[in-house]
Nucleic acid binder design. Sequence first.
DNA 1: ATTAGGG
DNA 2: CCCTAAT
Length: 733
Amino acid sequence: MVLQKRLDYGFNGYQVPTIPRATRSARKRVPFRKRVEGNRISAFDLLATVAGTLLLDKESSPASNNAWNAEDQSAVEKNNVKEERQDGDQSLKLETCNVSELVPQTNDPNYSSRESPSLQNGTQFGVTSAITTSERLDYQKLINGKIKNEMGGLACKVETGPFVSRTPGDCVEPVSENKVLTDEELDRTNKASSGEVADKCPLEDPLVLDGKPPAVVSSDSSIKAPSFGEHDPFISFPIQQYDVNVVSRDDDEKSSGCTHPSPIREPFRSTPRIGDRRIRKILASRYWKVALRSKNATYSNYDENLKSGYCNRSTYKRLRSGRNFPFKKRKFLHYTSESNSDGGTIGEGISDLPEKNINGKASILYSKMHGVTGEPSSLADQRKSFNSRDPHVKLRIKSFRVPELFIEIPESATVGSLKRTVKEAVTAILGGGLCVGVLLQGKKVRDDNKTLLQTGISRDNQMDSLGFSLEPNPSHTSPSLCPGGSPLTLPHDIPLPLASLGEEANFLSDNSILIHEAAWFKCMELVSPGKLYPANPGLVNQVTCHPSTDPCIPNACDFIESNNDCTASPTDMFDKSTTESKALVAVPAMSVETLAAVPVHKKSKQSEVAQRRIRRPFSISEVEALVQAVEKLGTGRWRDVKLRAFDNAKHRTYVDLKDKWKTLLHTARISPQQRRGEPVPQELLDRVLNAHTYWSQQQAKQQQQQLPESCLPHYNSTMIGSGRCDDDENILG
DNA sequence: ATTAGGG
DNA sequence: CCCTAAT
């Protein structure tokens, strides 16, 4: 129960920082954003925290959880029926967590064209598949703020699908994921598993290495593709894998680029039964581990827990949607880069590996990387440019994938604009927002100063296990990317925990993590499960950062609550709620508002521009209509002016009209020489002045005399010589 | 949600 | 046009 509350509580404010301005009608006023600087927490701290928490959670009784849930569900449903279809946001997500396929070449010409199936299919794609599934599911939940009822069964299936074949209704083992993770954590931290000993390095797991991607990939299409909202002009396309590679792979086809809603009920592709617990555990842990690298996966972790643990999709949905209500209308014009790179290695100069470590030839390779969007097919051809001089290491990277993108675009947008948008996003990523990671035998090569020879890359026997990964560069605020937060990328192999932070965590170059207040909130929740910390916007939270030198050994948590000025504890809300279910409804709503306040990341200028509405100068006829309406209605009734004269102009809000009147007035008052833009006929400007004068007088009179409206004089537009007052709507008549 | 006003 | 404050 505690877990349930905590999870719900902590998962908000997610994309709050990025509040794009789309169509005016769709824009949602959001509370003043505040910054909470200095929320720092090390990934390891969080790991330790959550690991411990999960250990506790694992012990919680599923039965009791379900009991609570069943009870709660009805209550929640009653309270939130209206949230059923609050949002039809559709977003386009280009997702990939991928790694290049690298085809090492020896001097043996016969070897040159050989692929590295183990690395590709096993190490990378298998993982990717798992992530993709979970992320997509979660993504849909997040974006749409809803889960179709049909999703419930699916949700359970999704949770286990990739790993163990289960029947659709199988929702037992609600904390199975936790359990798996916990075991994994124990493996990692104590080098001793509570159960069987899993491979220390999952990447080396034979099943993963040479196995095909989990069949769940093919079922991805059944999860994504949310239905279009009726009132939402935006379309989202969950394009999970934006594969720019040259080599087509069947594995990915079904999960890539699907933009069409698919029957959610499509049965989950039955996965080859893997009964072995150990394998399952490994896979699951991998799933967790990788999933956390995406903010979406972030949620999926908990979401899965939530769903699987309580088998109650309705409650889940409502809680979810309830929490998200402030954002239901939010539109995302920007595109956000999200890291879910498999490597998880970020920073520390890995990005410059091509130049440094692969002399000469590397530059070609690198430039080709950047040119991926333009002419990806030429990548493979670059192989020929690798001369075969002995001291050189010859590499062939057959493909790269761009990191995950998240794009939302109005459905009124043209296909061309969609293409451009995607292109820009991809280009932006490739243009500098990337790190390149090097993987050797599944391990990240962090020391950039080592030579290839020293590292062993030059040895033929190592070539099979050499890989590259494209990863968003957290320190790089790529233009048009990440306006609301840097990608969730971990400096080390950080399993699950940070997933809970999602986009709210920014990883800094010093291995510390700048977290949003929401993230802080989650942390505190995890640290003190019994206590619901208030999400006080003014709260300055700090978590010291003690990155461990051993990525496998998380440090102890060291939270420092610098100013816990709790004024309104959410627990108070529980006190007023008779039932816990109500509290569960209430708390998320509160947390949303508060959590909504914390964009840590500063928006780049370009993203700012991208979000800004396009400038649409008023035409003369529009000015005419505006002037006429104001003459009739007076100033200060902009809503009426809008309805009267601009009801059809969706892009003109009453605020716009008010602003335009303001500028018109200003224009009328300045000399013609000072005016810019399309000249407004002097006649109109005169009318503006007259109307303004008149209505100002009326306003003054009204204030002085406190006369009722019916006594006010009739404004006669003919007094300025041009207009006629034939308007029956003139209330002053 | 509107309105008013500064930027 | 944006953003905020005040209704």
